[in-house]
Write a protein that binds this DNA or RNA. Structure first.
Lengths: 154, 154
DNA sequence: TAAAACCCTGGAGTGCGCTCCAGGCAAGCG
DNA sequence: CGCTTGCCTGGAGCGCACTCCAGGGTTTTA
């Protein structure tokens, strides 16, 4: 009934999903609104991804409606991961293009992935540095500010 | 010859209020271009930070030029850290406002910092998930060592 | 003392990643 | 049959975080 809209609720099971396959098995065809429900992306965004070339061609029904398949969901999964590394969409598009172009882009793809991995590692390190700062600051606040932390309830 | 870049991992050790470190000692007054060199931010950005209320008011010379002091650099340091957690500038402004407002915002500040810390931890976890995906994919590419695509596309 | 280098302001412009709009098919139902 | 729901398209619009510009003072160097 109300599967529409871009809201986020749905699965609130932590952040990082160790997903293996949480897909309605058997099926290999989904409408855009189903994909919205799966990915948390909006339909607008899904169509936009396609327009800019971030998606491999998505199948269409005989009336022109999108029919996503499992491989599309897998791809969106990867895109989602890359997205939260901060990789610009343009770079992902480049990667998608290389995939489409075939085997001779093999090495380039490999290198792009490795570069990305380096970036991710660097970002994790940065964040850990930030965490250290926050910890220090929080401890400082906690030590200095006696009038808190004793709030019974909650 | 600039010292820019934020690549310092676990610099400084002490945890607390005073934190003078690796700054042209003795001095406590810097022009905007010196701050640019220190922080890697542009002068535009520094002025913009001030306009939007992200900076406590910066001293001025008798002719109206900015004269940053060590406490300003410390603040910019924190801002830089928070920035790379992805915290929106608006939130940092809110924090800055609370600092200006005085002690009665103490608890709120504390909570904001803690919430931020939770976010950072979550983001680190996400990134580590992404790292795992990248590792798998890179290994796959490396192992295959030969054309073949299972990018979820064709 | 003149040129060069540096700094000031308010406001407009930019790039990114969406997000929304208007207008319009297609299918299911009551 | 009309109504509602779901999807389609191209293009305009938005929020964020800067970034740049015009026009004009000030400070330093030669």
């Amino acid at each position: 009934m109300t599967v529409m809209e871009t809201t986020e609720p749905g699965t609130d099971t932590c952040a990082g999903p160790p997903r293996a396959t949480r897909r309605p098995d058997g099926r290999d065809q989904y409408t855009i609104s189903e994909v919205v429900a799966f990915t948390g992306l909006s339909a607008h965004t899904l169509r936009w991804y396609e327009r800019i070339g971030l998606m491999p061609h998505v199948d269409r029904s005989h009336t022109g409606q999108r029919r996503y398949r499992n491989r599309d969901l897998d791809w969106l999964d990867l895109v989602g991961k890359l997205r939260l590394t901060g990789m610009p969409v343009a770079d992902m598009v480049r990667y998608a293009e290389m995939v489409r172009e075939g085997d001779h882009t093999y090495t380039d793809r490999f290198e792009l992935l490795e570069a990305t991995r380096r970036d991710v590692r660097a970002r994790i390190a940065e964040l850990q540095g930030t965490l250290a700062v926050l910890d220090r600051k929080i401890n400082f606040y906690a030590d200095a500010g006696r009038p808190l932390a004793s709030e019974g309830s909650r």
